[in-house]
Design a protein around this nucleic acid. Structure first.
Lengths: 193, 193
DNA sequence: TCTTGTCTGGAACGTTTATTCCAGACAAAG
DNA sequence: CTTTGTCTGGAATAAACGTTCCAGACAAGA
C-alpha cells in the first residue's frame, strides 16, 4: 500500500540549491547533498535520476524563485529609472543576508558547468535574456515617462545593464570592497542620462 | 649525477593552464593534466607539490601573461579614450582565436575556487584591482588630454569599467549572441561622456 | 494475521580520484 | 667498469566518488 515520502521534494531541492550555489557542482559530493537535503541515497535515487538531475532542477528553481523574483521584487514600487538602480542596490543589500556573498548561482553555473552541459547552458542563456528584456522594458517605460532620454536604445541598454549586473555578481562572490560595489551602482545612474 | 628534466616547466604549466581554463579545477582530472602537460606522475610530483599547486601557478601565469598583457597590448598605440574601447573590443575579437570563447580564467576561478581557497581569492582580487587601476589611469590620461570630461571620477569609472569587463567575460564564456557583446562595447563609449 | 507495496538506513559495488612508491634507463664521475 | 643520483613510465595505494542494491520497518487492504 502506498506510503507517503517523509520529505518534501521542493524543500529538498531548495537545500540542494544552497549547497550547489555555495560550492559549485563538482566540489559538492553526494554526502554533502544527502546531508543538506536530509534524505538518504535510496530516497534520492528513487526520486531523482542523478546528481546532475538535481543540479538542473535546483538551477531552474533558482532562476525562477531567486533570480527572476529578486529583480522584480527589487524594482516593484519604483518609477522605471529608480527601479533600475534599485535592482543593483538590492544585490548589494542582499549580500548582507544569511546567504551572504554567494553571488549568483546562474552566473556561477555559466562558468563552471554550462560550457560542458548544453541543458545548463540553455537555462543560463534564457535567464540572462530575461534579465536583459526586464531592463530593456524598464528603459522603455522610463522613456515613456520622460525619465530616460529618447536617444538611448532600450535594447542596447538592456544588454549593458544585464552585463553590468553579471559583473556585479562576480564582484560580490569575490568579496570585492564595498566601495567598489557602490561605484558600480552609482555609475548605473550615469548610464541612464 | 644530475640529469636534466626532459620537459620545460613553463611549457608544462601553460598546458595545464589551458586545461584548467577550459574545464575548471575540480572537473580536470590528474589524467587530463598529465596528458596535456606531456609528463607523468613521477615527474609531476617531483616538480610540483600537488594538483592545487599547479592550479595556483597556472593562474599566476595566466594573470601575468594573459590578462595583464592582453589589456595592455590592446590599449597600446591608442589615445586613452580609444584605448578603453579597444580593450573591450579586443576581448570580442580574441574570442575568435584558437582558444575560442573560454572567457577569463581568473573570473572562472573567482567563482569556482576562490570562495574556498584564500590564496586563489588573493590572486583574483589583485588581478581585478590591477584592471581597475589600469582603467582609472586611462581615464585620468584621457582627462588630461581633454578626451574625457572632468566631471567623471576616475576611481569610480575604473571600478565600473572593470566590472563591465568581468561581465563581458562571463557573456563570452556563455556564448552570448554577438549583438549582445557589441551592445556592451558600444555603451562603454557612452559611459565616457 | 497475512500479503503487498513503499519507505528509510545504509552496505556494497565498480569506477575514479590524487598521491605515493618502485623498477629500469640513463649519464657523469671515479 | 662501477657507483651514484636523477630521470621516466607506470603500478599501487588508500580514499572518495556516484549509483545500485538490500534488509527491515511500516501501513493499508484483504
Amino acid at each position: 500500500m502506498p506510503w507517503d515520502k517523509q520529505f518534501d521534494i521542493d524543500v529538498a531541492l531548495d537545500k540542494a540549491k544552497e549547497v550547489f550555489w555555495t560550492h559549485g557542482y563538482e566540489a559538492t559530493s553526494m554526502e554533502m547533498l544527502l546531508r543538506a537535503m536530509g534524505i538518504n541515497r535510496g530516497s534520492f535515487y528513487d526520486t531523482f535520476k542523478s546528481k546532475r538531475d538535481v543540479l538542473i532542477r535546483s538551477l531552474r528553481r533558482y532562476d525562477t524563485d531567486n533570480r527572476a523574483s529578486a529583480i522584480r521584487a527589487a524594482a516593484a514600487g519604483y518609477p522605471p529609472r529608480e527601479a533600475i538602480t534599485a535592482v543593483f542596490r538590492s544585490m548589494i543589500d542582499g549580500s548582507r543576508g544569511p546567504l551572504g556573498r554567494l553571488g549568483c548561482f546562474l552566473v556561477n553555473s555559466a562558468l563552471e558547468v554550462a560550457p560542458q552541459d548544453e541543458e545548463v547552458s540553455l537555462i543560463v542563456r534564457e535567464g540572462l535574456r530575461d534579465v536583459e528584456r526586464f531592463f530593456a522594458d524598464l528603459v522603455r517605460a522610463g522613456q515613456e515617462q520622460g525619465q530616460i532620454p529618447q536617444h538611448i536604445d532600450p535594447t542596447d541598454m538592456g544588454r549593458t545593464l544585464m552585463s553590468q549586473l553579471v559583473g556585479l555578481m562576480v564582484l560580490l562572490r569575490s568579496q570585492a570592497p564595498k566601495a567598489t560595489l557602490e561605484s558600480v551602482v552609482s555609475q548605473v545612474s550615469r548610464l541612464l542620462t
